[in-house]
Simulated assay, not measured.
Amino acid sequence: MSKVIAFAMAAGLMLPITGLSAANAADVKVTWEEPSKYVDVQAADGSQKRFQENVFARFEEIFAELASELPSDQTLHITVTNVDLAGAIEYHDINGVPRELRIVRGHDFPMMQLSYKLVDSDGEVIQEGESRMRGRELPGQSRLSTPSSSRGGNLLEYEKPMVTEWFKNEFKQD
C-alpha cells in the first residue's frame, strides 16, 4: 500500500481502491468513505493504522474473490460507509500485564453498510443499491475469545461469511 493511500486512510478521506480483479472476473473498485466515523475498526494491542490497513485490504480481497463470479466485462463499485467488526475491545489482565483484546462472543455480530453499483463495459448500470448487512451466529461461534492480533490468517473470519452471504443474495447467478 502506498504512503499516499495510508495517509489518506489515517486522515479519514474517501479512498478509491482499484485494480483488484482476478483473471476472468469483474473489476472491483472499493471506496472507504470517512473511515474515522466507522463504528468499530479498532485495533487491540497494536498499531491502529496498520490494523485498519490490514482490515481494509482483507475486505478488498474478499470482494475481489466474490467478484470472480461476475463477468469480466463488468465493474463493481463499492462505497463502504460503516463497519463494525465482530466483538469488542476489552481490557484484561494477562499474567499481570493489562492488555487490550478483541473479545468475540456469540452475540457480537459484525455489521457493514455500503452502496454498490455494477456497471458493464459501456458504463451502463446493471444493478445498484444500498445494503446494511449484519452477521449472524455461525456454528462454533457461540463463545470465543481471541486477541485480534493473534487471528493472523483468520482476519475477518466472522465478517467474511456475512459479506459472502450478502454478495450471493445481491448477485444471484441464474
Rank of each mutant, 00 (worst) to 15 (best):
M1V: 10
M1D: 10
K3R: 09
K3I: 05
V4E: 14
V4I: 15
I5D: 12
A6G: 00
F7V: 04
A10D: 14
L15F: 03
L15S: 14
I17L: 15
I17Q: 12
N24Y: 12
N24A: 15
K29I: 15
T31G: 03
T31H: 09
T31I: 10
W32N: 05
P35Y: 10
S36Y: 03
K37G: 03
K37C: 02
V39C: 00
D40Y: 04
D40C: 02
V41A: 11
Q42N: 08
A44H: 08
D45C: 12
S47L: 04
F51M: 04
E53N: 06
V55S: 06
V55D: 12
V55I: 13
V55Y: 08
F59N: 03
F63C: 08
F63R: 06
F63K: 11
L70P: 06
L70R: 03
I78Y: 03
T79W: 02
T81I: 04
A88N: 11
I89G: 00
E90N: 10
D93F: 11
G96T: 10
G96F: 11
V97C: 07
V97K: 15
P98N: 13
R99H: 13
E100K: 11
I103G: 01
G106H: 05
M111Q: 10
M111I: 05
M112V: 11
Q113N: 11
Q113D: 14
L114W: 10
L114N: 00
K117G: 01
K117Q: 15
L118F: 08
L118P: 04
L118T: 05
V125D: 06
Q127A: 12
Q127P: 00
E128Y: 08
G129T: 07
E130Q: 12
S131C: 09
R132I: 09
M133P: 00
R136S: 12
E137W: 01
L138M: 14
L138R: 14
P139H: 00
L144D: 10
S145W: 11
T146E: 14
P147F: 05
S149K: 11
G152T: 02
L156I: 02
L156S: 06
K160E: 14
P161N: 07
P161W: 04
P161R: 04
V163Q: 08
E165Y: 02
W166A: 09
F167I: 03
F167C: 07
N169A: 15
E170Y: 01
Q173L: 13
D174E: 10
